[in-house]
Amino acid sequence: MATPEAEIIVEDPTAPAANSPSVVATRTVDVVTSLLLLALAALLCFDNWRTGIAWETDGPQAGYFPFYLGVILAGASFYGLITSLATRTGAAQIFLTRDQLRRVMQVFMPTLLFCLFTQWLGLYVASFLLIAGFMRVIGRISLWKSLLSAFLFAIIMFITFDVAFDVIMPKGPLEAAFGY
């Protein structure tokens, strides 16, 4: 193969293996989602029924539209539930393998922690912790690179949003110590 130009190669050592065992089948997720949507539809329908679903002389009451949308949602979810329970072919389809679950959790858990930390420490400190931690622990990037990129990113974001564009982000004790 003629490749006159240099190539860019990026490796992924922790990639999920292709033969990793299944955690959950697509059909199961289909069924669970349909049930959740049905429950949501029932809840919303009930609330709108309380608001009023009658048709007055000048048109529908506030709850009219959402009530019937809820009914349609329930109908479509019910149909989805029946079809996914009835089909045999989809049963073997994998929704998520164990390796994939591990990788997804590797992003989801830090994101969850980041949201929690934002509440207490402010967004900038939380984002420093998220980026540095993620690069170091999950990306196995050297410590100084992780710390430096996280620090630079947080500072650039702070200057762009809080200083230059007046878009105020949640702040915590650290920013307070600097008088912001």
């Binding site: 949201c115 984002s127 690069m135």
Partner: peptide
Amino acid sequence: LRVPFAAIAPMIVVSCAI
């Protein structure tokens, strides 16, 4: 694209939150 995804992913998360 040479920049590893482990560096880009958290930055995207932060941008989304902002």
